[in-house]
Computed example of a mutant assay.
Amino acid sequence: MTATVAITTRTGRSLVSKADFAMLAAFCGDEYGLERAVANRVVDQALALVFVMGSTGEGTSMAPSQKVDPGWHTLVLHTDWYANWCQEQFGYFLHHQPNSKTRTGGLMTSVVGKIRAAGFEVDDQLWDTAAECNAPACCGDGPCC
């Protein structure tokens, strides 16, 4: 007899209240010209990324994909909210230290692995790690191809 254990994943949006998520997603959509459904996905992934960065202390070795970056900018642009959220989640303020020049396919795969290992759902299309984004097709997110 084999026991089956269901693996439960969480979302980035589960880290904030429904009202806060709606406020952040609406801003992200308006600010970056994204449809609301896309903005929801982007902010969800940004929250998961920042949570993993802050809770592991590996923020300097991680970076958002080009598609997820507007979500992190959305968080940071809400400075009071972001500072309070960081303090509640990690006990310190996680600074945004841009390192977009390091965006590679390998880095994005590593970041996605860390987010998954922390138990979060990953939207591979936003990280350019979906099967259709692998070489020889170029994803357009840094020097991945």
Score class of each variant (00 low, 15 high):
Thr4Ala: 00
Thr4Gln: 01
Thr4Met: 04
Ala6Val: 07
Ile7Glu: 01
Thr8Gln: 02
Thr8Arg: 03
Thr9Gly: 00
Arg10Lys: 12
Arg10His: 10
Gly12Trp: 04
Gly12Met: 11
Arg13Gln: 11
Ser14Ile: 14
Leu15Glu: 01
Ala19Cys: 02
Ala19Gly: 04
Asp20Asn: 05
Phe21Asn: 06
Phe21Gly: 08
Ala22Tyr: 01
Ala22Cys: 05
Ala22Ser: 08
Met23Val: 09
Ala26Trp: 02
Phe27Lys: 15
Gly29Gln: 06
Asp30Leu: 12
Asp30Arg: 15
Asp30Trp: 13
Glu31Ala: 14
Glu31Gly: 10
Tyr32Lys: 14
Gly33Leu: 10
Leu34Arg: 09
Glu35Leu: 06
Arg36Ala: 08
Ala37Lys: 09
Val38Arg: 06
Ala39Glu: 02
Ala39Val: 09
Asn40Asp: 12
Val42Cys: 03
Val42Leu: 07
Val42His: 02
Asp44Ser: 08
Ala46Gly: 12
Ala46Trp: 03
Ala46Met: 09
Leu47Ala: 04
Leu47Asp: 02
Leu47Pro: 07
Ala48Thr: 10
Ala48Pro: 10
Val50Gln: 03
Val50Met: 11
Phe51Gly: 03
Val52Ala: 01
Met53Gln: 12
Thr56Gly: 07
Gly57Tyr: 13
Gly57Trp: 12
Glu58Arg: 13
Met62Gln: 11
Met62Cys: 12
Met62Glu: 06
Met62Val: 15
Met62Ile: 15
Ala63Lys: 06
Pro64Gln: 09
Ser65Lys: 03
Gln66Pro: 06
Gln66Gly: 12
Lys67Thr: 03
Lys67Gly: 00
Lys67Asp: 03
Val68Trp: 00
Val68Glu: 00
Val68His: 01
Val68Lys: 04
Pro70Gln: 09
Pro70Phe: 11
Gly71Lys: 08
Trp72Asn: 07
His73Gly: 11
Thr74Val: 13
Thr74Pro: 11
Leu75Thr: 15
Leu75Asp: 06
Val76Glu: 03
Leu77Asp: 14
Leu77Lys: 15
Asp80Gly: 09
Asp80Asn: 07
Asp80Val: 08
Asn84Lys: 10
Asn84Tyr: 04
Asn84Phe: 05
Asn84Val: 14
Asn84Glu: 07
Trp85Thr: 09
Cys86Gln: 07
Gln87Thr: 15
Gln89Asp: 01
Gln89Met: 14
Phe90Thr: 12
Gly91Met: 12
Gly91Phe: 09
Tyr92Met: 13
Phe93Pro: 07
His95Gly: 12
His96Phe: 14
Gln97Glu: 13
Pro98Gly: 11
Lys101His: 05
Thr102Ile: 15
Thr104Glu: 00
Gly105Ile: 04
Leu107Asp: 02
Met108Asp: 01
Met108Phe: 09
Thr109Ala: 08
Ser110Gln: 12
Ile115Leu: 05
Ile115Met: 05
Arg116Ile: 13
Ala117Gln: 08
Gly119Arg: 05
Phe120Met: 06
Glu121Lys: 11
Glu121Ser: 13
Val122Thr: 04
Val122Trp: 00
Val122Ser: 01
Asp123Ala: 08
Asp123Cys: 09
Asp123Phe: 04
Asp124Phe: 03
Asp124His: 09
Gln125Trp: 03
Leu126Pro: 02
Leu126Lys: 01
Leu126Thr: 02
Trp127Glu: 02
Thr129Phe: 02
Thr129Asn: 02
Ala130Leu: 02
Ala131Ile: 12
Glu132Pro: 02
Glu132Val: 10
Asn134Lys: 06
Pro136Ala: 05
Ala137Asn: 05
